[in-house]
Design a protein around this nucleic acid. Structure first.
Lengths: 338, 338
DNA sequence: TTGTAGGCGTTATCAA
DNA sequence: TTGATAACGCCTACAA
């Protein structure tokens, strides 16, 4: 492979290295004639500027790091894909930081910015992966960062997500409109802010409908299919069973449906099941899953665009930004049984 | 954030920059006493060596780039996660190159190596993203590279995957053992090598069983749920319908099942359906999907390990390396109807 | 065991 | 419009 440097190209083209550099970074400053001459040499030699050299000098790596708990979750994968597209179209590359939810790994990846290997962070989590001195402004203590799809309790950083409270409320209202009164909720882990927000929407909607809150109808799970099944199991053991189950994500809803069907229940005739996220498979399980659609592509795009703005030195308004959700009414919800 | 450099640290610790450098890269060459002294200054200052400076000097970026058609496909996501783990544990970072199957993007990401932004490539595709002169040895023309889960027609590069021919054959044999004689195949696009290999396994298994090949039973789709549904549609239109359908991936199998159920067919009583991949949801659709399990984690680990070996200058044997598949017999396949 | 010095490849500054 | 020069931050002979 070629080992040509900018000086070699400059020599071949009878210009200075500075001119070759300008051909790439500010061609408008180079005369047409020189431009063509240099370009020709570049093409013939297949010369590509070395990014490390450039980065060292410019103090910009051209990378952003995406810190994400688990790339195999369809929600995360969908967002990441959008991010990658947006980044690429603006000349950035994405470093993948799959953390398995481990704080140690979150910090490892966050540290890449300190090492000059990335210019900014796209975070999908509920904690800031830096040691923070609460007496000082947050912005001074962290690099450019956008938080997506989860909530961190501060208004000093940019956060992009759907309004979980409203979305959850809308979901419950859909079930109420079908005549359901005993509506169970399968929540995520209780230390996850988004789960708590969805829980808030659930209780608010019930209260508004004048339905007493029954904590027996609340089952905690881990946002995955297996624990969704276990949650359904618990609900079936109840003396007074729910007629509808709202799950705080689609994976758990799929698990709930699976277990109900295994036990001979008909969804939705016996029990309605509703999810949250609208992953691709939600439409294709049987029955197809009624759920809350999250605009993953828009979320990803909003995140990357906001981050790149910050990297370009533009001022970006901190605080939460909500993107619109929609209800996808499919076949897993129906009228409450008599 | 303050920008301390190696010289600042050296000054504070009363040593030379070289010694500070050695504290990171070869601490065994530094005396215990000096080590502690320098380490203390490093900790207090929160100093992290700048990777760009180091990379420029060492000519190693510490990055590898994963070129992958679509991260939202569970198979790819599973492999990528394993890759990320393996890379991280060896001190490498992963640049994500989601290409949407576009050759232009494949080349864009492959080019990162030429720009010194990555040291090697993990490729999941069926073509080499470089201009190759066929008269010269391939190895001289490409950077360290491992191809995963797809096939490129050369024995000059390392390739890791399951043996699609055998796996497909085993799948068909399972269906044959259940008494099926009219077995349809839903293939991927005909320019995808892995699909063609699976087709080969299909025809071989049928031939071995003495069953005439009927090209009406072959339907091409696009490896996704939607086209899987369309394929099922076509098969149902056949005068002489198949009793079993083998799909070359799980997404298509899920689509086939969905359509069959929509049309009132019972899976597997009326038609058996089988997939390939064993994505996580395969177990949780209804009925749970019989499929060929691909060891995604092992594939990912084998890929990254092989690449890192190459990057370390170790000789790695080129050619295909097969990892073992297993059959997951679940509820979507059953005895052929009488 | 430690220090000195040079250079990795590029871009920014300034002058021509 | 172009060129000379000096960093950017680090690593690694080589010397001490």
């Amino acid at each position: 492979m070629s080992k040509l440097g900018i000086k070699d190209i400059a020599a071949k083209a009878n210009v200075s290295p500075a001119t070759v550099s300008r051909v790439f970074s500010s061609p408008h400053l180079v005369s047409k004639k020189t431009l063509q001459k240099v370009q020709k040499v570049i093409d013939e030699a297949g010369y590509r500027p070395n990014r490390m050299g450039a980065s060292l000098r410019t103090r910009r790596s051209g990378n952003i790091v995406a810190i994400i708990p688990d790339i195999t979750k369809p929600v995360n994968a969908g967002i990441i894909r959008a991010i990658e597209q947006g980044a690429q179209s603006q000349g950035y590359s994405v470093l993948l930081g799959d953390t398995q939810g481990l704080e140690e790994r979150e910090r490892h990846y966050a540290d890449l910015v300190g090492q000059g290997q990335a210019d900014g962070i796209l975070l999908f989590g509920d904690r800031i992966p830096f040691d923070i001195d609460p007496s000082r402004p947050l912005k001074e203590q962290i690099p450019p960062l956008v938080n997506g799809n989860e909530r961190i309790d501060t208004d000093e950083i940019v956060q992009v997500a759907v309004d979980n409270v409203s979305a959850s409320q809308a979901a419950i209202e859909h079930l109420l409109s079908l005549g359901h009164r005993r509506i169970a909720a399968v929540t995520g882990p209780d230390n996850v802010p988004s789960s708590n927000e969805r829980l808030q929407g659930y209780t608010q909607a019930l209260a508004k409908a004048g339905i007493d809150f029954d904590d027996k109808l609340l089952v905690q799970a881990e946002y995955d299919v297996e624990t969704g099944m276990r949650a359904a199991n618990k609900l079936l053991l109840l003396k007074d069973r729910p007629t509808a189950v709202f799950c705080f994500n689609d994976d758990m809803a799929i698990g709930v449906m699976k277990l109900l069907q295994q036990q001979g229940f008909n969804v939705p005739a016996d029990v309605s099941v509703m999810g949250f996220d609208d992953i691709h498979y939600a439409e294709f399980v049987t029955p197809s899953l009624t759920t809350v659609h999250q605009p993953l592509e828009e979320i990803g795009k909003a995140c990357i665009n906001s981050l790149i703005k910050q990297l370009n030195g533009q001022e970006v308004e901190a605080g939460r930004r909500f993107l619109p959700f929609t209800l996808k009414i499919r076949d897993s919800t129906g009228p409450a049984p008599k």
